[in-house]
């Protein structure tokens, strides 16, 4: 399941919902992304997340489907916030549930790596020098590409354009 929302989320409630009624789940792995108060040497007083309504939901649904295709999963969840957030606020929750821990760990890692380079969100940080758009990081692209190495068969889209 995927959700894009301005409101905060309760991790406990979300994870309970994900596993409710399915006793064949043996492992549940989750990742939560938070707003940091520093970016390099800049102090961050707030962060605004912009997104592309419509495409965001499509991209997240696609990322989730690819995880489901690769690992035997009983359930997956992506909740991503947008709008103005403060340091310490929750930004994103991804979770994967499976019979065994290995699939849950790997799928959870895959979900956040792919989301970071494919879902159309942009971060604007409020710094002492004014608003600064966060640059995409090469390490994030490398983290995504890691899942494309030989022996790992993930469907590839034309995911970037010049």
């Amino acid at each position: 399941m995927i959700r894009v929302q301005a409101e905060d989320f309760d991790i406990g409630v979300e994870l309970k919902k994900l596993t409710a009624g399915d006793a064949s789940i043996g492992g549940l792995c989750s990742f939560v992304g938070l707003v940091r108060d520093m970016a390099g040497s800049d102090e961050i007083s707030a962060m605004t997340l912009e997104h592309y309504p419509g495409m965001t939901e499509k991209a997240l649904t696609d990322i989730e489907a690819q995880a489901q295709e690769r690992w035997p999963l009983n359930g997956t969840l992506i909740v991503h916030r947008y709008g103005r957030l403060q340091p310490g606020d929750q930004i994103v929750l991804v979770a994967a549930a499976s019979a065994h821990r290995e699939a849950a760990f790997e799928a959870c890692h895959f979900l956040i790596d792919w989301l970071k380079t494919k879902a159309p969100f942009w971060k604007l940080e409020d710094t002492p020098d004014g608003g600064q758009w966060v640059d995409a990081r090469d390490t994030d692209a490398a983290a995504t590409d890691r899942w494309l190495q030989p022996g790992i068969s993930v469907p590839t889209d034309a995911d970037s354009a010049e």
Binding site: L49, I112, L115, K116, T117, A119, P120, V134
Partner: peptide, 10 residues
């Protein structure tokens, strides 16, 4: 058609 910078969510 949409134009935007490389994405930075998560």
């Amino acid at each position: 058609v949409a134009f935007f910078p490389p994405v930075t969510g998560g």
